[in-house]
Design a protein around this nucleic acid. Structure first.
Lengths: 105, 105
DNA sequence: CAGACATATGAACGAATGCTCATATGTTAA
DNA sequence: TTAACATATGAGCATTCGTTCATATGTCTG
């Protein structure tokens, strides 16, 4: 089949958009990060709080928080020596909620 | 802080559920699989169709379809020599849609 | 049954990922 | 300023993951 004859699937989004979408879901695709997000569901928490609750190293938590921060899924504020993290927006709740609905079957 | 004094975050789901959730999002967290899902958005397609449209090896597509099948995100039916894949249920649309909304900002 | 075609699968390899360890940066109190 | 505490970060390592290549399985036609 020659190039100009290639069948057209007109509804395919830009390659960039599909790539970005995969990158977004990749963030949710790690149980450590999911657990961190759940800890932040009800309230903001400091890094050491999260590490305590999840029984993880401060360093490991901090590394993952950096990834969540870069993806704009969490935001942070400093209060003295501590830094408090919270969910960035409602999309985080929504995405996780839809995922949970799919699981329960 | 002693063990029995550890602060209780009562809203945390089971470890298993959080793990399964991460596993689900992990499937969406690869641009090849996202692209395959988009190809199947409007209609069922055969393996070689998908490979052609996405300019991928038949083998690579088949490997990814296996992963999508195991996660129950796509289903398949045989018609002669070909096997046609389609989206398994509405959750796939929903999850991708919510993801796209988060991207557009 | 033999050959062609469509799909599936196992092994191997390179790239990406998450953790650990050591250390750097930043903040507060003495 | 110095010491203690909280967080961030870079390097190294082990594991996971997606592709390729070769080949197996399954289906139809002659």
């Amino acid at each position: 089949m020659e190039e100009h004859m290639k069948k057209c699937i007109c509804t395919l989004p830009d390659e960039d958009e599909m790539f970005d979408l995969a990158e977004l879901f990749k963030i949710f695709g790690d149980s450590t990060r999911i657990r961190i997000l759940f800890v932040l569901f009800d309230n903001e928490h400091s890094v050491s709080d999260i590490a305590d609750v999840l029984n993880m190293t401060q360093s490991a938590v901090s590394h993952q928080l950096k990834i969540l921060r870069q993806a704009k899924l969490v935001s942070s504020r400093r209060d003295g020596k501590q830094i408090f993290y919270s969910l960035a927006d409602e999309h985080v709740h929504t995405i996780i909620q839809v995922g949970r609905e799919h699981i329960e079957e």
